[in-house]
Design a protein around this nucleic acid. Sequence first.
DNA 1: AGTCGATTTTTGGGAC
DNA 2: GTCCCAAAAATCGACT
Lengths: 87, 87, 87, 87
Amino acid sequence: MASLQVVEDGDDIEGEQLRNLIERIERLEEEKAVLADHVRSVYAEAKSSGFDPKIIRKVVRLRKMDPRDVDEEETLIHMYMRALGME
Amino acid sequence: MASLQVVEDGDDIEGEQLRNLIERIERLEEEKAVLADHVRSVYAEAKSSGFDPKIIRKVVRLRKMDPRDVDEEETLIHMYMRALGME
Amino acid sequence: MASLQVVEDGDDIEGEQLRNLIERIERLEEEKAVLADHVRSVYAEAKSSGFDPKIIRKVVRLRKMDPRDVDEEETLIHMYMRALGME
Amino acid sequence: MASLQVVEDGDDIEGEQLRNLIERIERLEEEKAVLADHVRSVYAEAKSSGFDPKIIRKVVRLRKMDPRDVDEEETLIHMYMRALGME
DNA sequence: AGTCGATTTTTGGGAC
DNA sequence: GTCCCAAAAATCGACT
């Protein structure tokens, strides 16, 4: 196993490789966190402009879906509700 | 499709089946919610007795794992950390 | 701190209390897991009867909500979509 | 309410603002998704180099924490485990 | 297909 | 009482 060699013979090549991988991951995660912060800011801005963040989230989700699928899902939900005597 | 028949010819057999399934799910979810409440109570009680709920959660998780796996994982983590020059 | 006493003077009263709390949590979690299994079974049964589990999940969620809120949410979503020129 | 005006008097200013907000969110989410893909690639590369992705994830998490907190948590966990007669 | 991890949504706790 | 933050639960997707 990779790291075992580090322990056994002091070879730090694996350590370098591991560090390299981890630092790349950390950098990417850091960038993701920054973007997530920005997203949060936009939602806050939306809220302070009188929009409902919860609704915006749903709209964003709907826009990501295939409209065909959205319709089909809606239809099925209504069919099930009607079968249950609701609505 | 199942529910369509309900709409078309008034056959409520599918509706009955669907309602049956959904009510069973709802009953089970309700019982789960009650248990979740109890769990929360126990954590609150632990906290008021001076224990740290966060630590208790970790201990509960560790107890659920195979001790063999816990040790192996610990070992690997330390090997990686050492290879990184940490610890 | 509680556990420190255990370390320091061998007093196992705190240990008993901690064990008691943890075992109660584990018992409750076990019961929750059993129920979650049952829920999964019902969804599997629903699926094998031709129902769409995903739709059933949505229906269950809708039934849990206040119908008033459901309507209001629907209305807002449509208002937002229209303002966006969708639909 | 904002969108209501759109419906009532055809004023599309609110629509513009809403669209602006939503498009910013979508853009940011898209960038996040790209980064998440990159992260996944790095884990795949790590794995093909013989490292255990699961362990790497734990190491990344540990590195994100304050070392002081890590130690304190470890200590508490062991105290609790000992009080339980484990280890 | 079944588990595992990640993301998202919801809920509880705390502050003002 | 309301709003924000953090923890926890549920859902979703990826990998085996």
